[in-house]
């Protein structure tokens, strides 16, 4: 009997607490700055594409989701800064595991991974991102946290997650403090 009261008292106590659940998409939780989301292809300041179509990203990709078809850069109306450019550059977002190896492999910093993770579509075909889509800014932006906050992760996580026990560098066992 006493055990039952004790048990329900926990339930009662939580009934009057502010819920920890965040209602998505009304509330979009910011991600960390180094969160790896949708890719972005970049241009030089003069408008030429940084990508020269070398396919090193495709070579590095463990999910085999990048397809690059290079072509000779036309003398009139150059596309990239090199002799070649990526005539076709496609990333299959349905396959991508967002590991960021393409970013590491790129010798020209032409591809980076952004923060955006809201990429769902109602058809698989729409998840194959073409070069134009990757060069354009993302339609939906996911907010990211400031770098300052990210640099102090323990307090930040505790603030967000409140009462939950957190495995941190200072508390490796995850034991309650």
């Amino acid at each position: 009997m006493l055990d039952q009261v004790k048990g329900f008292s926990v339930t009662l106590r939580h009934l009057f607490r502010k819920p920890v659940t965040q209602e998505y998409p009304e509330y979009r939780r910011p991600v960390y700055p180094r969160f790896r989301g949708r890719h972005q292809l970049h241009r030089h300041e003069n408008g030429l594409e940084k990508c020269v179509g070398c396919s090193l990203c495709a070579a590095a990709c463990p999910a085999d989701c990048i397809r690059v078809v290079p072509a000779e850069n036309p003398v009139e109306g150059r596309v990239s800064a090199g002799e070649r450019y990526a005539r076709i550059y496609e990333i299959n977002m349905a396959r991508c595991i967002f590991c960021g190896y393409c970013e590491l492999a790129c010798p020209f910093d032409a591809i980076t991974l952004g923060n955006d993770f809201e990429l769902s579509e109602i058809s698989r075909d729409a998840l194959v991102y073409t070069k134009d889509m990757l060069l354009a800014k993302p339609e939906r932006r996911t907010p990211s946290k400031s770098v300052e906050l990210y640099d102090v992760p323990v307090q930040e996580m505790e603030r967000v997650l409140g009462m939950y026990d957190v495995i941190t560098a200072t508390n490796p066992e995850g034991a309650p403090e």
Binding site: C54, S55, A58, A59, P70, E72
Partner: peptide
Amino acid sequence: YRFKARPWE
């Protein structure tokens, strides 16, 4: 073969 393929593809 100019700019047709890379050896790993």
